[in-house]
């Protein structure tokens, strides 16, 4: 099946095999491997993307239903040359270890900062509770976003 959608601002056409998820199509058909596959049941947030502006798990979006949709992946948040403030804050705070959860956190945190530029610790914990990190214990991620919030307030 052919699906036309917008990904990171670019019109894209994807060949969608069967009932696969948007995550599979992003990674395998559209050469955007930044979104990670770690659980395929919406329990880890590693595949977080913005889907028509809302934060969702790409593994739970049926790709065949994406015709006409607007998708933003981690590749559309910032680039190596122009990091998003959330990306820079995470680097500065030491919030990256193995990095597998990081793209999902970047997308979710960027969305959080966009909707609530000055979240407190409780807001950050709740907003990012759908993104599991196994390496950092979340402390450095919290400090990264608190520093951003402090800068914004």
């Amino acid at each position: 099946m052919i699906v036309e959608l917008t990904v990171n601002g670019e019109p894209r056409v994807a060949t969608v095999p069967g009932s696969v998820s948007l995550l599979t199509v992003l990674r395998d058909e559209l050469a955007l491997p930044g979104s990670k596959n770690a659980c395929e049941q919406g329990e880890c947030g590693s595949c977080s993307v913005l889907f028509d502006g809302e934060l969702v798990c790409a593994c739970l979006v049926m790709a065949a239903d994406c015709d006409g949709s607007d998708v933003v992946t981690v590749e559309g948040i910032g680039t190596d040359e122009h990091l998003h403030p959330v990306q820079q804050a995470m680097l500065d705070a030491g919030a990256v270890q193995c990095g597998f959860c990081t793209p999902g956190f970047v997308v979710a945190a960027a969305r959080l900062i966009e909707t609530n530029p000055t979240p407190d610790a409780g807001d950050i914990r709740e907003a990012l509770a759908g993104n599991v990190c196994r390496c950092t214990g979340y402390g450095a991620i919290l400090r990264a976003l608190e520093s951003l919030a402090k800068g914004a307030s």
């Binding site: 934060l55 739970l60 907003a127 509770a129 759908g130 993104n131």
Partner: peptide, 9 residues
């Protein structure tokens, strides 16, 4: 319910 991602969908 679930996570923010789940609640959005």
């Amino acid at each position: 319910v679930g996570s923010p991602q789940i609640r959005n969908a």
